[in-house]
Nucleic acid binder design. Structure first.
Lengths: 217, 217
DNA sequence: TGTACATCAGTGAACGCGCGTTCACTGATGTAC
DNA sequence: TGTACATCAGTGAACGCGCGTTCACTGATGTAC
């Protein structure tokens, strides 16, 4: 019996597109992208194997739709993280925001592994144009927070890209290492909830102690 | 015509196991793990589709063998990186080693994407026991380099795991973001060769400038 | 050095399966008047 | 409010394909004597 059945006797489904997306994400979360088939997704949604083609041109388009949705969710999660963060004592707003953004990133990745996996894979490169703007939005938030840290003298002047690179790589790397199970196997982290805070606190600390003489505004 | 053909007329192959591993890695590099099939690998090796079963119990065992090999290669690359690194002015040996290890990590990941992809995936969790020791070796090198940085006063006393986590996450994250094509799409890096140095230099700088009062030994 | 024989590492045909996708169809829904 | 009709979103059967794996086989190789 499918978990999300259409209403008994209903011929039209109502929101099959949504259900297909959800079931696909569930499969990817549990068994990986390789295990995703439209047959299986249709089965779980309780429809025939031809039905998905009224909503997605192909298996690849289904994945692309999930990726696009994922990038929007990631941006939203980062925004939320930055909005909800509380500014600590002796901390500037930019520093706090950086923590918040990173936390949102990791929180999203761990809560939505299916989306996350689908969003970051080489096969997506070609389709990148479509979601370029939403990628740039999340990327832009990170960059401008770091630029503000730099203005505040937390980081040396000059090219800020190395700092963006390290910050992004750290939250991304921690997310994938956690999802792959490597971090807990290595004894480096045992609590997904706390992972984002652990990374962002450490990064913030490295940035903060790094003050280069300039006074804070 | 297969790229790696067995010697003309030879019935026995000589080193089919090796050839199968190599071809499998090539396929994964170019088309991802999902695209890997024993049929295809056998075809490329120029043997019948049953032949691989004299060397690997199953498709999954082939992948496991590549993962094990990959972890050994990663450890070697990190060692080489640490050995070859040159100590800069005003830099301690531990700092230089940390850079070297990170550089080796990224260099390995980019030069051996196939291995790298296969090594880090959730499906491997179960088989982790087999390679636990070699994983711990590379992980141990990182940890002890950071411990030495801490002793030298580059990092605050206390739990060093957050620093290990951030350093590892940064090199790992940069590697996967590069491999996925995200970094170049974002304009954050355009040269794989220089990626490792960019990350490790930045990390080293954040660590170094972070000196907490203790004098260097 | 030669022979008998066990073992190794291939062949090639076959199996059942699930896959992506297509297609003619039909029931349900929405709209114009 | 009722009817005619276009369109939408399903069905279900079918296709060809490549897959993982098995198996009886056989040629090549290594070893004991």
């Amino acid at each position: 019996m499918p978990r999300v059945a259409k209403k008994a006797g209903a011929y039209h489904h109502g929101d099959l597109r949504r259900v297909l997306l959800d079931e696909a994400v569930r499969v990817v979360e549990r068994e990986g992208i390789g295990a995703l088939s439209l047959h299986a997704v249709a089965r779980k949604a309780g429809v025939s194997s031809g039905a998905p083609y009224h909503h997605f041109e192909s298996r690849e388009q289904l994945l692309a739709a999930i990726a696009i949705e994922g990038f929007a969710m990631l941006t939203a999660a980062m925004k939320r993280g930055a909005d909800e963060v509380e500014i600590r004592e002796k901390e500037t707003e930019a520093e706090a925001q950086l923590r918040g953004l990173g936390n949102g990133y990791v929180r999203f990745a761990l809560a939505h592994r299916g989306h996350f996996r689908i969003m970051f894979r080489p096969e997506l490169k070609e389709h990148f144009g479509a979601q370029q703007d939403v990628v740039e939005e999340s990327f832009g938030m990170l960059t401008s927070a770091i630029a503000r840290c730099q203005e505040e003298g937390l980081l040396p002047d000059g090219d800020l890209r190395p700092f963006v690179l390290v910050a992004w790589s750290a939250v991304h790397g921690a997310s994938v290492l956690w999802i792959d199970g490597t971090l807990s196997a290595a004894g480096l982290a045992d609590d997904g909830e706390a992972l984002g805070a652990m990374v962002t606190n450490t990064l913030a600390m490295l940035f903060r102690r790094n003050r280069v003489g300039k006074r804070q505004k």
